[in-house]
Design a protein around this nucleic acid. Structure first.
Lengths: 342, 342
DNA sequence: GTTAGCACTCCATTAAAACGAGTGCTAACA
DNA sequence: TGTTAGCACTCGTTTTAATGGAGTGCTAAC
């Protein structure tokens, strides 16, 4: 069967309608579309074809049609138009350059959630390829040392180390100097075994402290990778969509947002896309099991210095794709303007 | 009307029953209680009295009775027994002394939530009366300075300052020394105007940096007070209780846990209690509007060095008060053993 | 003071009926 | 050959009625 112009128009009309109302749409409704001057009977015939092609379906015999996942897919791939709708909302995102990336991302999540009325998640940048800016050791008390590790993007991590024996202020100063001259500017991946050996040699009798510090660094980074920071907001927005808000489903979905670590898969999958295009996961396409009744729109952001992560919007399958995509695009543009062109 | 021994026994039996089943309990059910050798008719008479006293009520004419808020109140105040139930759960809390208070509290929240099957919230210790351990300034780049502020309890705060003009390494060292000698060991409240003036004088030409640092400190602290850290866990547990999990209610309650700042009132109210007793808020007694259908059990914890905050368990009114209270008591005991006696 | 007995209330469940939105099919039409 | 009006049919939803049962309050007897 051929998917001609008219069928596409009808499909588009059906999906548009369904996105708005959330109700199955019947042939009569479509026949009223000014773009399609056809009787309901004709529409019905076409609908039967579209159903056969797996693009739409009936919840039950005497109901209107709703899009299938395949139908949505076709819609977002081919039928969706670039939204020119009031970008005023997007403009209001009004991002200033913020020193602390974490703060920025938290706010961003909040703003996106309240702008879109969907749930939002943002992954903090992965630090693996991120460069050390400096390390600062300070004495906390007799046996404890605070290591402050700062990476590009002004991401700060603290870690408290147990020293084997009492720490001397002088030693500390030396260590600071040593660590910084040797390590600053390197990414975690670039700290090789050879370098470590050399570092220890230089440290002489204090090599055990060097070891602790290096462990702390790698552990801090590793911990972050296994359990990366994820900022979420507006999870309770799902209650605005009846198809998601009944008991079981809502519970599962909200747990996902509460536990957060389950979101990792979505983040890694989405990061693996090599391009900077916006991606859309419909229903089961999502790597997260509990989102099988949702759609997820993700974008890779970059804040310069190779700091990158993903932003995801989670909503019902009948989410307003155009608005979400356009909001994300505008946002990416803005971030790019601010952080990359400088 | 008098509330004699028998009436109390009956009330207790009714509430016990209702806590377990969540269903209104009828006279026949109570007449089977081995502790009460009475016919259902007699129970009915007594029930009528209890209802008149406002301790129980009927959802509708031909239903059994459920406790009123007043009834619950009387129960937790007088009728509740100390639970000797398997404290093994509580023992499993197995707390080790953790260096980072934040980490400890986060874990605690998780453990409590999964142990009780209710929602848990823990407020991070308020820093106002908390003493500074040390301040460390480090140069980030030409115009930026990282201030690391460490307080008792090993609570670390970072803040990035904009310097007016380029920062000299030498100056930094001086500032560090100056700030630490003058401020270490003081609480925020103890940093008086006089002290600040003196500090500025000592700093001479760099007094503007001192000012910035002080501002940063007080702002950091203030920000924390307005929006104190609150760790929550198990908010989705509320779906286990039908009376809380229908649409509107669940949504409101979960939003409360998502927004968190609404929980502040609960925390301040609970902190104001001068004693270290466990407190129970039933329904409208709770300072948080959205918890009017819940009960909240709170405890003030103290981790030594005056680090204190509150732990709260939020569940349906028919929560297992005995278990919750006993769990919290055990926990407090353990924390006390570890942190205060040393 | 306690209890058996009974009429009564009212919610919950089930069954039946009415409704209506939407379909598929057929036959007529351009 | 594509389009459309007409109509019987399907099936979920809503409405109404009927039935059952849990539990009560009251009365009268023990």
């Amino acid at each position: 069967m051929e998917l001609d112009e008219r069928k596409l128009k009808i499909l588009k009309s059906i999906i548009r309608n369904y996105l708005e109302t959330g109700e199955p749409v019947g042939s009569r409704t479509i026949s009223k579309d000014p773009e399609l001057q056809l009787s309901s009977a004709t529409i019905r015939n076409e609908m039967a074809d579209l159903e056969e092609m797996g693009l739409i379906m009936q919840p039950h015999t005497s109901a209107g049609r709703i899009p299938t996942d395949q139908g949505y897919r076709l819609y977002v791939d081919q039928l969706m138009e670039d939204s020119k709708r009031e970008t005023k909302e997007a403009n209001q995102l009004l991002i200033e350059r913020v020193d602390r990336v974490e703060l920025l991302l938290k706010n961003l999540a909040k703003i996106l959630a309240s702008n879109t009325n969907y749930a939002t998640l943002i992954s903090a940048p992965q630090s693996r390829h991120n460069k050390l800016k400096f390390i600062q050791l300070s004495k906390v008390d007799e046996r404890k040392v605070l290591a402050v590790i700062m990476m590009e993007g002004n991401v700060v991590r603290n870690s408290i180390l147990d020293a084997v024996d009492e720490v001397d202020e002088q030693v500390m100063l030396k260590m600071n100097l040593l660590l910084n001259t040797m390590l600053t500017g390197l990414s975690i991946d670039e700290i090789s075994l050879g370098l470590i050996a050399k570092l220890k040699e230089e440290a002489g009798e204090y090599s055990h402290i060097v070891e602790k510090v290096l462990n702390a660094i790698s552990e801090t980074i590793r911990a972050e990778e296994n359990d990366p920071q994820i900022y979420t907001s507006g999870a309770t927005n799902i209650f605005k969509y009846p198809e998601l808000s009944d008991g079981e489903k809502a519970s599962e979905l909200l747990s996902t947002f509460e536990e957060k670590h389950v979101l990792n898969e979505l983040i890694t999958t989405s990061m693996q896309q090599n391009n900077h295009e916006i991606q859309i996961y419909i229903g089961n396409e999502s790597p997260v099991e509990t989102m099988k009744d949702c759609s997820v729109v993700t974008a890779n952001y970059e804040l310069g210095d190779g700091l990158q992560g993903i932003i995801g919007i989670v909503g019902p399958k009948r989410m307003d794709y155009e608005k979400v995509v356009s909001t994300l695009r505008t946002l990416m543009q803005q971030l790019d303007d601010i952080y990359n062109k400088k």
